[in-house]
Nucleic acid binder design. Structure first.
Ligand code: FES
Ligand code: FES
Lengths: 146, 146
DNA sequence: TACTATTCCTATCGATTCGGTATGAATTAT
DNA sequence: ATAATTCATACCGAATCGATAGGAATAGTA
């Protein structure tokens, strides 16, 4: 499993939109500033997120983006798989891998399958309502740093 | 987590050497044929595995490689981390990542930490004695394919 | 209508990694 | 001497990553 910067930005974007769900429309500029991403790069990410059905957009002067569905129905797994591809750690899980003469018996493949399942168990359970609530909560508790 | 072909070859190499532990010395050529890897590429992998303390080598005419320790004491995690780097799925787990203004509170980071732990729990438990035994066992049971 | 702020589209680019080749030196058994 | 092996190093083409660049299309507003 790889999580690229693109995936990182995508997740933060969805999280940011989750925090504004049911209230504002949010511009790419706003998001870019808040999540500290290059705006032009973020635009490409937003374009993909739209194609993936995660966000809706409105063009023109007071345009922007909103979530396409309830944050509770979007999981980290959905987003990261769409942006960064499958979660399994090695090619042989997918098709076209001929490096193991008898893949059905390959003992390593079984390890990667286990890993994939363990990862999925986590990322498919974390949804953006929970994440947004965690963020709201953590903003109430000030940090008493020295 | 990423597992490259290099990592794939490394794991298969250790597995192959585990199957010959206490018996033969094995040449890179033999390994290359059995695991279907380009020999010159495999030599580089073997060189790294030697630096990592996983294998010992003997030069000259009847040279070759043997495992440096008992297969039971080598785990998939040790090998893959040494060859392909840390198992965590994103950069922010490591140092020098400044993209989250308050990383200590970042809710996504917590997800990645969980994922990293789940992956580690698996790959640090699988050792090469077990894998070798699985291979030996599966070779006894012929496949009744049509 | 003119202006402005926004999304949308597409091309390019430098750096790095990946998977592999190529060449040959050093070592050792026969 | 010869042959078989490990060891060392350099290179290379393709892909990916993380952007940057330039503008077209759209829509609200004065
Ligand atoms: S089938 Fe994946 S390593 Fe063998
Ligand atoms: S610290 Fe990793 S995504 Fe925030």
């Amino acid at each position: 499993m790889k999580v690229t910067y693109k995936g990182d930005y995508a997740l933060k974007t969805i999280l940011d939109l989750s925090l504004h769900y049911d209230s504002d429309i949010v511009t790419s500029n706003d998001i870019a500033k808040r999540i500290d991403a290059p705006i032009k790069f973020l635009e490409q990410v937003l374009s993909e997120l739209k194609k993936g059905g995660f966000v809706l957009s409105k063009r023109g002067k007071v345009g922007g983006y909103i979530l396409a569905k309830n944050p509770a129905k979007i999981t980290v797994g959905q987003v990261i798989r769409f942006i960064d591809g499958p979660v399994e750690p090695i090619a042989c899980i997918n098709k076209g891998y001929t490096n193991c003469s008898d893949a059905s018996k390959c003992v390593l493949k079984k390890v990667w399958e286990q890993v994939g399942m363990a990862v999925s168990a986590i990322i498919d359970k974390v949804n953006f309502e929970d994440l947004a609530n965690e963020v709201r909560k953590s903003k109430q508790e000030p940090v008493y740093s020295i």
